[in-house]
Amino acid sequence: METESVALLVSALSLVLAALALGWQIAQYLLSAGRPKATLLHGLVSPSGVYSGTVRADGNGFDLGGLRGQGTSGFDAVGIQVTNHGRAPVIIESVKLLPRGGAMSLVPVGERVGPDLPHKLEPGANASWFLDLDHAARLAAASREVLKERVSGVYMTAQLGTGRTVRTRQTLRV
């Protein structure tokens, strides 16, 4: 093997190794922060706790008929669950209910069920906040009737301490 081919092989190998090292550094940087993800929940808030499930892709909520049939009382609720998939804690400043396709919003002040805000969400942890589903129905109806908006349902967002907002992908039809 000639020295030029050996030099070319060594330089190509060092270039590949440098690209891998750069990729690893970028991945470490991106994974070192908090990475919150939001999920829309629908459920029943009772005196003993909250029974909930995720909202399906078609916009239908959790089936509460079985719970009500067993004598569970309470009010229907819509909620947001924020999960921190990152390596650093995340501060959640507020949660908000919004109509999908509308401009209005509802920031719950007193009737929210869940941890006090602001809330520090540690890595690998999650927290949930719930509102009365009646508020969601009134918000959607007001958007449709007063502002003449085409509202398909409601979703929720969580405002982080960094100013970033995470939103639920699902929409609950109300």
Results as ranks from 00 to 15, higher is better:
R87T: 07
W129Q: 07
A57I: 04
S48G: 06
L9Y: 09
A77Q: 05
V109E: 12
L40M: 06
V166A: 06
R35G: 04
L97Y: 00
T3V: 14
R169F: 07
Q28N: 13
A125L: 08
G153K: 09
S32D: 11
A137S: 13
S48K: 12
R173Q: 13
L147N: 06
S128Y: 00
L133E: 07
A77F: 01
V109I: 11
G74L: 05
H42C: 02
S105A: 13
K120M: 15
L133T: 00
I91R: 12
G74W: 04
G79W: 03
E122M: 11
P123Y: 12
V55M: 08
V10C: 08
I80M: 05
G49I: 11
T162F: 01
P99G: 02
P89R: 10
L31V: 02
P47H: 01
A127I: 11
P36W: 01
L172N: 05
L121F: 09
K148H: 14
L41D: 06
S73G: 13
D76W: 00
V10S: 12
K148A: 15
R169P: 01
G86Y: 01
E4D: 12
L17R: 04
L15R: 10
T54C: 01
G153R: 11
G79I: 01
S46I: 00
A142W: 07
N126A: 14
E149M: 08
D63P: 10
G71Q: 02
T54W: 03
T171F: 07
G34K: 13
G59N: 08
L172Q: 10
P99D: 02
I80Q: 04
T168V: 08
V50T: 13
K148P: 00
S73M: 08
V146P: 00
D134L: 08
K96Q: 14
A38I: 03
G49Q: 03
A7I: 11
E145G: 03
R35H: 14
T83M: 07
R100T: 01
G53S: 09
Q70D: 09
D116H: 08
M104T: 04
H42W: 07
N84T: 10
R167T: 07
G153M: 05
M156K: 06
L172S: 07
T39S: 13
A77I: 02
Y29R: 06
K37Q: 14
F75E: 12
T162K: 04
Q81S: 11
R167A: 15
R112T: 10
L9E: 11
A12H: 03
G124W: 06
A21R: 05
G86N: 08
A137H: 10
S14M: 13
G114Q: 07
P99V: 01
T162Q: 09
G114S: 06
Q81A: 10
A88Y: 03
H85E: 15
D58K: 00
G74C: 01
P123F: 08
A12C: 05
L160S: 09
T165D: 09
G79L: 05
G65R: 15
A141H: 07
M156I: 05
L30G: 04
T83A: 14
A136W: 04
N60Y: 12
Y51W: 09
L117N: 05
P89E: 08
G114M: 06
D132C: 03
L31G: 03
A21N: 11
S94E: 08
E93F: 04
R173F: 00
V78H: 01
L13D: 00
